[in-house]
Design a protein around this nucleic acid. Structure first.
Length: 604
RNA sequence: GCCCAUAUGGCUCAGGGGUAGAGCACUUCCUUGGUAAGGAAGAGGUCGUGAGUUCAAGUCUCACUAUGGGCUCCA
């Protein structure tokens, strides 16, 4: 038996640890390394080692569950003391001490009845066992420490050298908001020191891309305590960036047959009652009273678009009719979930509603999916799609839901587009396809969404005249591609680490005149560029040339352009191309052609 | 909302009971320099807010506010 054998993996991909496998196990051996199977065992055992250390430091600690997760492992437990980040070091130290004791990890089994008896004094273990259906339970033992556990585990503690406890957090027992809150400690483990170090380094690098940090450095956006949480302010640089993104999207909508509309920011509460928002979404809405009338600030833009649609009679010839709006919405998100631009209380959706006949749904959904794809390609994003089904709080009949849900699936299936299912994740008025983007540190964020809705047209008696002169009800497809400008710009910032492509960069060029006498030439160029829709700055402060070049370079601007006697005389520019890391000279005309061409790259 | 942590000039951070420090940024002056920090002088904070303990509080306690890490991944 190899010294590095820590388990086996059978034909079904199930991991069997050495404690469970017999002497003559024929399954494929798992060696101690950084493979997925190996790390799963190692991390699970490290979670146990941590629990053992916590038991020694906090003898009264009671443990709930300690699974392996995507990014390592955690253990949930209850202690009387409060444990902070500062306590992690002590726990790590204790873990290292325990490793030196060279315990073997042993396994034994007992009936569920015996286990219930054995852990009779531990209500958390009782809760764990409630959720287990098996009749035979296993217990793992290392030194004095015993824990009910399904395994798998490494044979001995010596395999657990390379770990790091990363954070301490609170977590509800069983993820239930109404349940007690336990303490959770997260950690990560690898098979060797180098990989652990590399992983921690990667996390550090990801932190540098954090849009909150870059947003402050580049003066894109800000929050203000006196204004309120989750309410972003756009500073000039951020507003320029946003304006560029909006412009790109405007054209993209117009060329795809969408028409702009705009609804009011607040509507009478009765309208929200009719729509179902009051009942299903009321707790997230901001309500106010004006002249003894209750009003609701819009959390969605649908109602405005419906009213516009209803204003004039519509024919089947008008369908599909696509209205779009950069709709500002307000939603009362729980204070604890606010997160930079990713989760705010006021944001602007790139929202559209497509009114169409039922047999047009598939084609329209597909067209939206293609729109999404071209936007994501423009920015080089990986994304995934998810079909979300009927949630607990919902309006409309099941049969209608089934038709709509199937419609979405058919549109994707028919075109071989991969997707997953999010059971119960739909909007209260209909099922949806969510488009999720992965951010710099692997978190997934919902951006675009496509939702089929039979309910609102019915509730608001939306109609069109069909070919046979009868009145029919259109289907509404709600859709957003970026989701919100706030979140999308946050993700873009991390994606590019602030080094936005030319067509998005808030400042596209910084001119550095060598001396005062060259400033006018630079200002002339700046004006010329502005007429082409290109933003530039002239850095003519009284600093040394070297310093100005250095500072300009640090601004994450695509081009730094130096102008001196040479350039003024020949009508040229000396370019420092940051993106391509090269320097070259161009005539003014060549320069303009190059830049206007680059602007075109932002077309979809 | 809940658990834990954090909160010092525009930014990054030091100071841990005796009435505030550094670097960068900012202002003025000198320097007019050909590609990553030239020099000098100066201004700016009562230490998130409010209470409390103390002869004395950024510094200790409590509350509040804001920010950060989490709250699906099932022995």
């Amino acid at each position: 038996m190899s010294e590095n054998l820590i388990g086996y993996i059978d034909d079904q991909g199930k991991i069997i640890d050495t404690q469970s496998a017999g002497e003559n196990c024929t399954a494929t051996p798992i060696e101690y390394d950084n493979s997925d199977a190996s790390l799963e065992i190692v991390r699970h055992s490290t979670a146990h080692l941590m629990a053992q250390a916590i038991t020694e430091l906090y003898p009264k600690a009671q443990f709930f569950v300690g699974p392996v997760v995507d990014e390592g492992f955690y253990y949930d437990f209850r202690v009387d003391e409060t444990i902070g980040e500062g306590d992690l070091k002590a726990i790590e130290k204790k873990m290292k001490e325990l490793i030196k004791k060279k315990y073997k990890i042993e396994k034994y089994e007992m009936s569920k009845a015996e286990a219930l008896e054995k852990f009779a004094n531990d209500d958390l273990k009782q809760k764990v066992m409630e959720r287990i259906e098996d009749d035979i339970l296993s217990v793992y033992k290392q030194g004095d420490f015993e824990d009910l556990c399904r395994g798998p585990h490494v044979p001995a503690l010596r395999f657990l050298h390379n770990f790091k406890l990363t954070r301490v957090a609170g977590a509800y027992l069983g993820g239930d908001e109404k349940a007690e809150m336990l303490t959770r400690i997260y950690g990560i483990a690898f098979a060797d020191k180098e990989t652990l170090k590399a992983h921690l380094h990667m996390l550090e690098e990801a932190k540098k891309r954090d849009h909150r940090k870059i947003g402050a450095e580049m003066e894109l956006f800000m929050f203000d305590e006196s204004a309120g949480p989750g309410l972003p302010f756009w500073m000039p640089k951020g507003a320029k960036l946003r304006y560029k993104l909006e412009s790109i999207l405007h054209k993209a909508h117009l060329t795809r047959g969408y028409e702009p509309v705009r609804g009011p920011e607040i509507l009478k509460a009765d309208m929200w009652r009719t729509s179902g928002h009051y009942a299903c979404y009321g707790e997230n809405m901001y309500l106010t009273t004006i002249d003894e009338q209750e009003y609701g600030i819009k959390p969605m833009n649908c109602l405005g678009h419906i009213q516009v649609f209803k204003q004039t009679p519509k024919s089947y010839r008008d369908l599909p009719l696509k209205y779009y709006e950069y709709g500002v919405v307000h939603r009362h998100e729980k204070s604890g979930v606010l997160h930079g631009l990713f989760r705010v209380r006021e944001f602007t959706q790139d929202d559209a509603h497509i009114f169409c006949e039922p047999d047009q749904i598939a084609a329209e959904v597909l067209e939206v999916v293609e729109f999404v794809d071209s936007v994501m390609k423009l920015f080089g994003f990986e994304y995934s799609m998810e079909v979300a089904t009927k949630p607990e709080k919902a309006i409309g009949e099941d049969a209608v839901w089934d038709v709509a849900t199937q419609g979405l699936k058919d549109a994707l299936d028919g075109n071989n587009l991969p997707y997953t299912i999010d059971e119960g994740g739909g909007a209260f008025y209909g099922p949806k396809i969510d488009i999720k983007i992965t951010d710099a540190i692997g978190r997934k964020w919902q951006c675009g969404t496509i939702q089929v809705d039979f309910n609102l047209p019915e509730r608001f008696e939306v109609e069109y005249v069909a070919a046979d002169n009868s009145r029919k009800q259109p289907v509404m497809i709600h859709r957003a591609i970026l989701g919100s400008f706030e979140r999308f710009i946050g993700i873009l910032t991390e994606h590019y680490a602030g080094e936005f492509p030319f067509f998005l960069a808030p400042t596209q060029i910084i001119f550095v005149p060598i001396s005062d006498s060259h400033a006018d030439y630079a200002y002339g160029l700046k004006k010329k560029l502005l007429l082409e829709g290109i933003d530039s700055e002239v850095y003519d402060k009284n600093d040394s040339l070297n310093k100005r070049v250095r500072n300009a370079e640090k601004q994450r601007v695509p081009y730094v352009v130096i102008v001196g006697d040479e350039e003024v005389k020949n009508n040229t520019v000396a370019i420092r191309d940051r993106r391509n890391k090269e320097q070259y000279n161009l005539t003014q005309d060549e320069f303009m052609v190059k830049l206007t061409k680059q602007l075109q790259e932002g077309k979809i």
